[in-house]
């Protein structure tokens, strides 16, 4: 921790790091002074009560907040030693490397195959049909959906069940080969069995990807993450990072009394 060049050091250790990040929606400060590092090839859960800014923080990691009029980020979000909010950084390039899975499954109203092929195609895919077939299969296998859909790749993505749709969205994100996958409450619209499958999938994906997941479900954070960041809003309704540690530490031996109260269900 005493390296002279902190940027290089954290770029090696962390997949993503925020330093004194503040996020504003016009004049309203939604997130205040958040600094933490997301460990490579680990699952990091962001938890906290509604309105605590955890989704806002997640969406700042691949500049999805740019799409909200008036949204503004101050401070640094470092990815491979570069600040994602530097003036010359292209949000489109960022999103090609940091993928996202949303709360509600949102497959395109296209075939399963075309859902997967969309990302590579817009990213300048040069391969032939056979290679695309392979990529589609690999992505679907990666999201453990291949066996469910291999015989109906030309059917609409919307013909699948909710859990399958969400895995299709994960496969779609995998197809552009990102380094980090952000998941914004990916199981909140799913039944318990589909939820379990997504969690198992996250453990498999961890080998190759870094995962950041926002979850409302504390059991999910406890059983399916390596690190947990607990957010809470302060008196000005600005979200703050209260505690960030190994998941066992947060759930078994929290340092902050507010964390302890939240995980024991006393509020939130």
């Amino acid at each position: 921790m005493t390296t002279t060049n902190p940027a290089t050091m954290s770029a090696e250790r962390f997949a993503l790091e925020t330093r004194n990040m503040h996020i504003y929606y016009s004049a309203f400060r939604a997130v205040k002074d958040v600094s933490f590092g997301v460990e490579r090839n680990k699952i990091t859960a962001l938890i906290g009560p509604s309105g605590c800014g955890k989704s806002t923080v997640l969406r700042s990691f691949n500049r999805m907040n740019d799409l909200v009029p008036g949204a503004r980020v101050e401070g640094d979000v470092l990815f491979r030693g570069q600040n994602l909010y530097a003036p010359d950084v292209d949000a489109v390039q960022v999103r090609r490397r940091i993928g996202m899975v949303f709360q509600k499954p949102n497959p395109f109203p296209k075939s399963i195959y075309d859902n997967i092929a969309f990302g590579p195609k817009i990213n300048g895919w040069k391969g032939n049909k056979g290679e695309m077939d392979e990529l589609v299969e690999r992505s679907l296998r990666g999201a453990s959906l291949w066996d469910d859909v291999k015989d109906k790749l030309q059917q609409s993505g919307l013909s699948l069940s909710g859990g399958q749709q969400q895995r299709l969205c994960i496969a779609r994100a995998l197809a552009v080969e990102p380094e980090i996958i952000l998941m914004d409450e990916p199981c909140s619209a799913l039944d318990p069995i589909s939820t379990l499958r997504i969690e198992e999938l996250m453990f498999e994906l961890r080998q190759h990807y870094t995962i950041v997941i926002v979850t409302h479900n504390m059991q999910q954070a406890a059983r399916a993450s390596d690190y947990t960041a607990f957010f809470l809003m302060d008196a000005d309704r600005a979200g703050q990072l209260v505690e960030y540690d190994h998941t066992e530490q947060i759930f078994q031996n929290p340092k902050d009394s507010r964390t302890e109260q939240y995980i024991s269900g006393r509020f939130g």
């Binding site: 999103r95 969309f118 990213n123």
Partner: peptide
């Protein structure tokens, strides 16, 4: 068209 579809495309790096 639901904005979820736009978000999905943007999230994949679409312009």
């Amino acid at each position: 068209v639901p904005s979820a579809l736009r978000q999905a495309a943007f999230g994949l790096g679409a312009t």
